[in-house]
Structure formats: structure tokens, C-alpha cells
Design a protein around this nucleic acid. Sequence first.
DNA 1: TATGAATGAGGGTTCATTCAT
DNA 2: CATGAATGAACCCTCATTCAT
Lengths: 199, 199, 199, 199
Amino acid sequence: MGKLETNKKQKRDSLLESAFSLFTSKGINKTSISEIVEKSGVAKGTFYLYFKDKYDLRNRLIAHKASQLFYNADAALATENINDIYDEVIFLADNIIDQFNNNKSLLLFISKNLSWGVFKDSLINPAFDEDINFYDLYQKLITRDDCTLKDPEIMVFMIIELISSTCYSSILYSEPVDIETLKPYLYGSIRNIIKQHIV
Amino acid sequence: MGKLETNKKQKRDSLLESAFSLFTSKGINKTSISEIVEKSGVAKGTFYLYFKDKYDLRNRLIAHKASQLFYNADAALATENINDIYDEVIFLADNIIDQFNNNKSLLLFISKNLSWGVFKDSLINPAFDEDINFYDLYQKLITRDDCTLKDPEIMVFMIIELISSTCYSSILYSEPVDIETLKPYLYGSIRNIIKQHIV
Amino acid sequence: MGKLETNKKQKRDSLLESAFSLFTSKGINKTSISEIVEKSGVAKGTFYLYFKDKYDLRNRLIAHKASQLFYNADAALATENINDIYDEVIFLADNIIDQFNNNKSLLLFISKNLSWGVFKDSLINPAFDEDINFYDLYQKLITRDDCTLKDPEIMVFMIIELISSTCYSSILYSEPVDIETLKPYLYGSIRNIIKQHIV
Amino acid sequence: MGKLETNKKQKRDSLLESAFSLFTSKGINKTSISEIVEKSGVAKGTFYLYFKDKYDLRNRLIAHKASQLFYNADAALATENINDIYDEVIFLADNIIDQFNNNKSLLLFISKNLSWGVFKDSLINPAFDEDINFYDLYQKLITRDDCTLKDPEIMVFMIIELISSTCYSSILYSEPVDIETLKPYLYGSIRNIIKQHIV
DNA sequence: TATGAATGAGGGTTCATTCAT
DNA sequence: CATGAATGAACCCTCATTCAT
């Protein structure tokens, strides 16, 4: 990679990180482009060389962060020797919940912005070259030797929505209970959801 | 109620309905107070006689609309002769989903804004005098003769989050499937969640 | 007229005059709204209470200034005892040329912006309440007792275009000759144009 | 001409043609240098190797296009056997009007920008090496064997201003009438203008 | 109470110009 | 000669809020 291209990537990443920091601390709508570029140390016009507007940046950021989230969970799963679908899903869920717990601004950002449509898009169409195509991971999870899944997409959909919506309240505000208290019930529900889809 | 007070209530309600219409059609952030007052046919200064700012109006609106939602569901339940907790919850869920299905802008508005914290607040502290205190309904639901519930608040929490997050995608975008296809799985999951909490 | 309305008219007129001054001294495109409001001593937002944008202001200004121009010429004609069409038209032309000669920024502004379409519009649809509808003047000029005119609109069109385009160069830059030198030829041409249209 | 110089000329001509196309379709002020270079397929910095700024380009373009206009008309006249000054001028006028009629963006561009001062400059000082010095054509036209002209420059001035201002409205907007309807009157007026200058 | 003209800070965006490559 | 990423001043316009009526 040439010097110029490295420089460009640095600028873009700097804008992304500055924006993420501001979006999570004061919200997207209250964050101005002036603030983003100031925090990044680039000129205002430079912003428009990399992003169409604030919402373009946000969409790319969601996809980017969601991509990282699943990449980390999948990488951790690969180091374990788990083959049972229940244990696999719970492992991934637990890993992702831990990531959220350790990075509350990430949770704040993802929960408020990630819809199922955006999720599918971001996993299949990487936001940046360095992001990974997650279609394979998804296929591997639902195409199984040990059992046959009925409507696997509905299953994944329900699990993801349940996790992201309950974690938001539980991790960020301990409402109605903190995440450790919630986990047994949450994982119980997840196991029940999976059970519904095994033929 | 005197003529003057009726007039005041009309103005306030007009502002609420205009705002709801604009919020759901173009989003809160893109809706200006100018537009709200213009649609309401009142002067700009009048807005500030009733609400502190746009977000004050929004919060009252969420509580108001959520209150109506549960009021309708509870009223419908009262006409039925159901005593089993599973059937009661499913009946309420189904009624609320139908209300969402018939009023997509309500769904759009509630889902994007209703968190567990706001939910509890809005049911217990009515936004307006005419709204009903739902604490009693809630107590009636979880304090039962026929069974004992363990951690009932967690149960209600999980059910509400699961419904509101899955309905958003399914009803508004038919993603990953339309609501009728989703219902059997959703209601199955709700029954399993309840089962976890019955001692 | 109430105090408030007087105040509003003052603000609008102030903006018009400030804009006219700036438009004629440095051109419309190089004049910013910031400059106009600064010169007027009103706030930036106030501009948008009276005009849609800079070009809306310009169009109203053209119509307004053209209206004044013809109003003056017609008023002067009324004090004379002229009935011959040749003498009438030459009198009006001469009066208008004198106005241009005494107010070069008016000439600069009108010539660069007044097309036949705008002319007709501005005379028939006044820009402001106080402007006069000139349709009657126009009718009076072309509907005559003493002669019948063939295609009178073409005649007026050619005379106006000839005057406005030649005056621009002659009065402002004395190119190819100054206006006094040009006048005999110009009026000769105007008389010839009229002659063509008399049946 | 070396290969390098040919390449340079191609770049410059490409910029000129792109600019002309953009100027006539969306106006000079709304056309940015970015758009010109993008349409030309050259880099932004390259623009400044050929022109000082947008207005430098425009001025050269006016002179260039006006030069072509008169060159074409004169070339056509040379193929005819006309010696009478009336017929010569009308022939040139008619040819130029036809060029305008067939190339409305040319008319739009020339009319809005061509003043008598620019006209004289552009005919006498060619914008580009390949443009022709029209001083000779002008001299040939006004220095005649068959008659003596009084103030020939005023004559040419009035004719050119009359044609360019009336054609603008008539050809582009058919206001007040289309060009074919206007022609008899226009040519009649031109003949009368000439007649005034013949001693 | 109710009005709506006025405010002016601050938003997003554009763009001519530069200069290291 | 040619490039195009970077700049940052300056643009237009919006809008929540105030206050004299």
C-alpha cells in the first residue's frame, strides 16, 4: 500500500473513530460534522471526500462495528471444541454479551441503530474492504450435520432481536435486573427458541 | 370542564396529534416546531405554553400512546372469559400486535422510542390527567390465584422486548418473514418464557 | 396602516434598497445575503421572512424598478399636450433614457436583467401592493384614435429592446459613441419602426 | 505541430467545450470548475494550467464563439454574388440568425454575454491563435465603392444590438412572436437603419 | 392566554485554489 | 506537464426561542 493510500485510510479511520466516540457520548443528532472533523484534526471539506453525509458515515459505522462484533465471537468459537448447536449459539451469545458488557458505548450504538435489515446487509456486504463477508459463518451455523433446522432465519432473527433489546436495558440501566441475573432466563429462552426449530 | 379549559385541551391535543403525524412520517429530528404549530393552526409562541420543547412533547406522546395501547388490550381482555395465564398473555400480545398491524405509524413510533424504563414510567405515571394508571393491571396480571410466578418482572420484560423488536421488522418490512408467518414461533417462544417463570 | 405593518414595510424596503445598492455595485452573484442584511441592519433570518432567496428578491426588484421607471415616464407625458404617436413614443423614450442617464446603476441593473417576458409580467403583475398595473398604460398607447397599428406588440418589443441594449453600451461606456451623439440615430430608427406598423 | 502541442490543444479544447456545454445548460454561476474538469476528464489542477479562472475561460469562449459565428457568415457571403450594402447586411443578419436558430445554446450564451465592448475586442484581438482577425471583414463592409456611409460604426452597433436582443426573446421563447414572424419587421428596421447612414 | 415578527447562532455543504507527488 | 487529496473560508438556510403587542 502506497504512502498516499495509507494516509487516506488513516484519515477515514480517524473520522470513523471520532464520529463513533461522539455518536455514543452525545447522540447522532446532537453531533455536528464540525465536531467530528475537529476531533479528527482534519478540515471540514475533507469529511465530504470520504462520506456523503453524517448518515452515510453512521451506516458504514454500524456495519463496520457489527462486523467486528461477529468476527470476534466467531474467532473465539473457533478456539473451542463445541459442536452442539445449543452450546454453539449460547457460546456466541455469551461472547457477544460480554463484548457489549465491556464496551457499553458499542452496545448503545448497535442497539439503537441495528435493525434486521441493516444486519443482513452489513454481514453480507462489507462496509470496507477490510471487513469480512459473514455469509459463510451464517451458512455454517445453520447448515448442520447433527440436526435439521426448520426456518433457520426466523430462529436467528428472534435470538438476535431478543439479545439486543434485552441487553440494552439490562446492561446499560440494570433494568429490570442486571445482566448476570438476566442471563439464566435469557439463555433458557434462547434454548427454547432453538428447540422450536429443530425438526 | 369550563369552555376555556376545553379550548386549552383542544389546543394541546391538536399539537399532540400534529406532532405524532409529523414524527411518524418524517422523524422527530426532521420535524420542526414550526411545522407542528402550522399543522395545528396555532401560533409559534403557543407551543411553549404547553410543552417545554420538542422532546418534552415526544416523551408525553410516547407515554400517552403506550397508555392507549394497553388500555385497549386490557379492555378487550375484559370481554373474554380467560383465566389461564398463558392464554391471557397471548391474548394481550395478539391484541397489541393487531393494533400495531392496523396502525403502522404507531408501531414505528413506539418501537423506536419505547425502552423498558420509559415503559414502566409511562404506565405508572400518566402523561395526562385522562390517562389511566396501569399499575393495577400489571399487578393483576402477575399476582395470580392459579399459579406462582418467579421473577415476574423479568418475564414481562422479556416478553415485551421480544414482541416490540420482532414486530418492528416483521410488520413494517416483512423481514425476515411477515407477521402471520412469525406468529406461531413468536407465541411459542412467549409460552416458553412464561413456563420458565412458573414455579 | 398599523405600527407593526409600517415596521414590516420599512424592513422590506430596507432590504430592497440595500440589495439594489449591492447588486449594482458588485453584481448579484458576488453579493451575499450576509452583506444585504448587514447593510440593512436586520438579522439574517429576517431576510427569509420577506424573500425566498436572493433571486426572488432580484425578480421583485426588477419588476419594482421597471414599474417606477414607466410610472415616471407616463406621469411626465401626462403633463404635456402630445397626441401624435411618434411624438408620444419619442417623449417616453427620451424620458426613460434621461432617467437611465441620471441613474446609471438603475440602467446597469435593468439592462442586464430585463427580458421581454419579465417586462410583460412585471407590468401586468405588480411585485408589491403599491406598484401600479401598467396594462392600462400599454393599452392606451397602442389603441389609438388617430391611427391603426398593425402588430403593435412587435413594435413595442422592438423599440424597448433597441433602447435598452443600445443605452447600456452608450450611456455606461460611451461605446461606440455617447448617448447625445446616438440619440438622433436612435430616435430616427424608432420613428422608422413606428412607421412600419402604421397601416 | 508536435505531438505534445497537439495534446495540449486537445486538453484546452476539451475544457472549452465542456465549459460551454455546462455554461449554456446550467449557467456560469452554477457551474463549478469541478464539473468542468470532470466532464473534460482531466484533473482539477490541470484547469489552472490553461485558464486563470472560470471567468477567464468564459471571456475566451465568448470571443471564440463570436469569431466562429462571423467567420461562418462571411464565408457564406463569399459564395454569393451580392454587392448591394442592403443585401449584404441582410444576408449576414439572416445567416447569423439561422445559426442562432440552429444552435440555441449558442444564442443563449452569446446574448447574455456579448456587449459591444467585448464584441469589438473579440473581433480584433483573437482569443486563440487559430481565430481570425475580423478587422478586415469589418473594414470591407463599411468601406464601400457604391456608397458613402456616415458614422458606420453607429450603424453596425445598432444593427447588432437590435438583432441580438430581439433574437434572444423571439428564438428562445417565441415572445412576443416567433422568429419567422419577426423577420420581416426586423429586416425592415435594419434597412431603415442603413438608409439613415447613407449620405 | 395568544400571537407571530424578529433574532442570530450554528447547521450542512460547496468550491476555488494549492501543492506534494 | 499532470495529478487529485486536502484545505478552510464562505456560502445559504433553518430553527428554537423570545417578547412586544
